[in-house]
Simulated assay, not measured.
Amino acid sequence: MSLPHALLTSIAEKPSSGYELARRFDKSIGYFWHATHQQIYRELARMEEHGWVASAEVEGGRAGKKQFHVLAAGKEELRRWVKLSSPPMRLRDEMMVKLRADAAIGPIGLLEEFERRLVLHEEELHNYRLIEERDFNQPDLSRESHLHYLILKAGIAFEESRVQWTKEILAFLRKDEA
């Protein structure tokens, strides 16, 4: 996935200023595709050059505040991109290499880092559950909401598996260090 396609999707959902887009991005797509605010603004300028989005100054807003909306060429680009095959996600986690290093050279003191990571995964899972309870507790969801819920459920499943796996690693490390 590329950042322009993530941004096009977000703007297609709701035309936004760069600042609003960056904030919304942090609260939605940002859960599975990270970008800094600087990257977002730089990409918005490129997308405007390509004719995928247009911006207009917001009346009554701060000077220079622009709102972006998707143009026909941007929608076509999204349609083209969506039809491309996507490779399955491959795990790329530095901690896996650290575990291999631990296996190769002996205990290197990973217990504290895994304890920290367990807390982070539990917090993220808790946040996802709050979103689930707040946004998806009605039985008849619209198509859009149902798709958003399925995306959230993927995040929930990921965090549940990371919590379970991290607890297993912690149990092993604690026993190994005893």
Rank of each mutant, 00 (worst) to 15 (best):
S2C: 07
L3P: 01
A6I: 04
A6L: 14
T9I: 06
I11T: 01
A12N: 13
E13M: 15
P15N: 15
E20G: 11
D26S: 15
I29V: 13
H34S: 10
T36D: 07
Q38S: 14
Q38T: 07
E43P: 00
L44Y: 04
M47Q: 10
H50R: 12
H50T: 08
A54F: 08
K65E: 13
F68I: 01
L71N: 01
L71K: 01
G74L: 01
R79E: 09
R79V: 05
W81G: 09
V82F: 14
V82K: 15
K83S: 13
S86H: 10
L91D: 03
M95D: 11
M96F: 10
A101M: 08
D102A: 09
D102G: 00
L111N: 00
E112N: 06
E113L: 11
H121D: 01
H126W: 09
H126K: 08
R129F: 07
I131F: 09
I131W: 03
E132D: 11
E133D: 11
R134C: 08
P139N: 06
S142G: 06
R143Y: 14
S145H: 12
S145L: 15
Y149P: 02
K153H: 00
E159M: 07
E159Y: 02
E160Q: 15
S161F: 12
W165H: 14
T166P: 01
T166G: 02
K167T: 08
A171I: 02
K175A: 11
A178Y: 01
